[in-house]
Structures are given as C-alpha cells and as structure tokens.
Design a protein around this nucleic acid. Structure first.
Length: 218
DNA sequence: GCGACAG
DNA sequence: ATCTTGTCGC
C-alpha cells in the first residue's frame, strides 16, 4: 500500500475516499466489538486490537504489533500515523469483529474523514469514533447524567454527538465511521461504558498497547 | 492576521 | 500521546 509522504498528499487521499463513507447500518446488533488503541514510546508505537463479546464485555481475542511511526502527528491527518500498525494488528486476528471502536473521531473531522471513517473504508467493517477531546463542531454541554447528549455541528451539519457516559464526568465525542448511523453509535458507546468514562473496548486496547510497548522498550 | 488543533 | 507527586473527593 502506497502511503502519502506529505500533508498535501494525505489530504488528497482523504478527499478521494470521503465519498465512500456510508453512515448507515443494517440495524443488527454486533456480537463481537473491537477496541483499537496505540501507545507511543521514544521511537516505537504499539497498536493493539481487543475483541470483546458485546454482551459480557469479556475480551475473547486480542492482537498487538510494535512498529515505527511512518507519519508525523498532524491534527486532521492523525489516521496516517496510526493506520498502518492498526491494520497489521487487525490482520493478525482470527475472528472478524462486527464493529470497530476507534480512539479518535470519524465524521467529526475537518474533511469528514477521521480515523474511524478511514479504517472502516479500508476494512469494510462497520466502525465508529470515540474521541476523548474535541476536534471540530459547535456544541453545548450535555446534562450531567449518564446518557445525556448534545449534537456536534460543523459547518451546518450534524457530524457527531457529545455523550455523557457517566454522571458528572466529562463527555466523550462520538461520530460515525462507516456502516453505522449516529444514534446507533451513541447507543453503542453507552452499552460499552457501564462503569467508566471510556468504553471497555478502548480501555482493554489501551492496556494491551501499553504493556506491549513496555515489553518492547524498557 | 489570530487562534484551534483527534493521538 | 507522554513527562509526573501529591492531593482533593467519594
């Protein structure tokens, strides 16, 4: 796979692929939900994927790969930094997840093509984004109770939602990646976050990526 | 021109 | 993302 070498090339890739995104699902409940996250070291990155049973939230399979970053971190071009390693980790999986929960945004992106969209298009697997911090979109604070939410509006379009996953805790930013609609994505993040701010998918992948990085370096 | 800016 | 102790609060 040819990878962009400059920000200009990367933006063109996003412009070329954005039209393929379908923010609609088939309405079926996912059985296997995957969490993806990347940890950073001095000159190493560890990309982890954990596959959870959607009902029990137990991890049924996982994969992690340590690699070298091939693209710098640039807001809006984040996917080009994490995608290569994440794709490798996904390929090593025996099971095929029904949904990919990404650590970052999907449609809530300057060009409507964040990491979650990119990953969904490249894999053909439904995907959604759960960002810990804001990237784009005007919004107001949701109510303080778990479950309350407000729309994220960017350039006149609803691109995502702020969702309060725990009472009185900072909300997360949810958006569609590919093959899932926004209400379904928002519902999913709540089901995946019974006890903490972040979904269990992200939490398990985060633990795995960090331990792999420690093991690889020092 | 001056900020803002996923991880 | 990561560097990092104590500390406020349930």
């Amino acid at each position: 796979m040819v990878w962009p070498r400059s920000a200009e090339e990367a933006e063109k890739v996003q412009e070329d692929l954005r039209g393929l995104v379908r923010a609609e699902g088939d309405g079926r409940e996912p059985r296997l939900v995957a969490g993806l996250d990347v940890a950073y070291g001095d000159d190493l990155i560890a990309a982890a994927v954990t596959v959870l049973d959607a009902s029990s939230l137990e991890v049924v399979e996982s994969s992690v790969v340590v690699d070298r970053p091939v693209f710098p971190y640039v807001p809006g071009l984040f996917a080009f930094r994490e995608l290569p390693a994440l794709l490798d980790a996904l390929r090593a999986l025996e099971t095929v997840p029904d949904l990919l929960v990404c650590d970052g945004h999907g449609l809530a992106h300057p060009r409507r093509f964040g990491l979650a969209c990119h990953l969904g298009i490249l894999t053909g697997v439904p995907s959604m984004g759960v960002g810990k911090t804001f990237l784009v979109g005007e919004h107001v604070e949701p109510g303080r109770e778990r479950g309350s939410w407000t729309p994220l509006v960017h350039e006149g379009e609803t691109v995502g939602r702020t969702v309060r996953t725990q009472d009185g805790i900072r909300p997360v930013y949810v958006s569609s990646g590919h093959l899932i609609d926004l209400p379904a994505a928002a519902r999913r993040v709540l089901e995946l976050s019974p006890s903490y701010r972040l979904p269990e998918t992200t939490r398990s992948a985060d633990r795995l990526s960090r331990s792999a990085l420690r093991e690889a370096s020092g």
